[in-house]
Computed example of a mutant assay.
Amino acid sequence: MIIRIIGEGQYRAPEALCEELNKIDNRIVVLVSEEKAEEFRKELSKLISEIKEKGEAIGAEEILESDIIVPPEDLSLEEAKAVFTGSGIFED
């Protein structure tokens, strides 16, 4: 799966990592719906860190369509309400 982090590039993520990211994504959906801003920011930061640490960075010269687009870490809670709804950005 190809994941783009807005403003930071693309990463190739193996299936096992995607399962882990989906769990974090599901927690973010709950935190956003409960309007828990601080906890939401921590989980979004964790989501992005996991992608960067465990995914394989894709060079800028390689142009691939992204399967998932992850918002930047500075996403506000209000903006997150439009992104992290239903099943979130990762499909169950």
Rank of each mutant, 00 (worst) to 15 (best):
M1A: 11
M1G: 12
I2G: 01
I5S: 00
I5W: 08
I6S: 04
G7F: 09
E8I: 01
Q10L: 12
Q10H: 00
Q10N: 11
Y11T: 05
Y11W: 13
Y11L: 07
Y11S: 06
A13I: 07
A13P: 00
P14W: 00
P14K: 14
E15R: 05
E15G: 05
E15A: 10
A16R: 14
A16F: 08
A16D: 14
L17G: 03
L17M: 01
C18P: 00
E20V: 05
L21P: 06
I24Y: 02
D25H: 02
N26E: 15
L31N: 12
S33Y: 15
S33T: 13
E35D: 11
E35S: 07
E38F: 09
E38T: 10
E38C: 04
F40D: 00
R41H: 09
R41I: 01
E43L: 15
S45R: 13
K46A: 10
L47M: 07
S49E: 11
E50P: 02
K52C: 10
K52M: 13
G55E: 06
G55N: 06
E56S: 13
A57V: 03
I58M: 14
I58F: 14
G59R: 07
G59H: 09
A60G: 03
A60N: 08
E61C: 09
E61M: 11
E61T: 13
E61F: 13
I63C: 00
I63S: 09
I63E: 10
E65V: 03
S66F: 12
S66W: 13
I68E: 03
I68N: 04
I69M: 12
I69S: 12
P71F: 13
P71S: 12
P72F: 04
E73S: 10
E73Q: 09
D74G: 01
D74A: 02
L75P: 02
L77G: 11
L77C: 10
E78H: 04
E78Y: 00
E79F: 00
E79D: 15
A80P: 02
A80G: 03
K81H: 08
A82R: 13
V83Q: 07
F84I: 03
F84K: 07
T85I: 08
S87Q: 15
S87M: 13
G88N: 04
I89K: 07
I89Q: 05
F90N: 03
E91N: 12
E91P: 03
E91I: 10
E91Q: 12
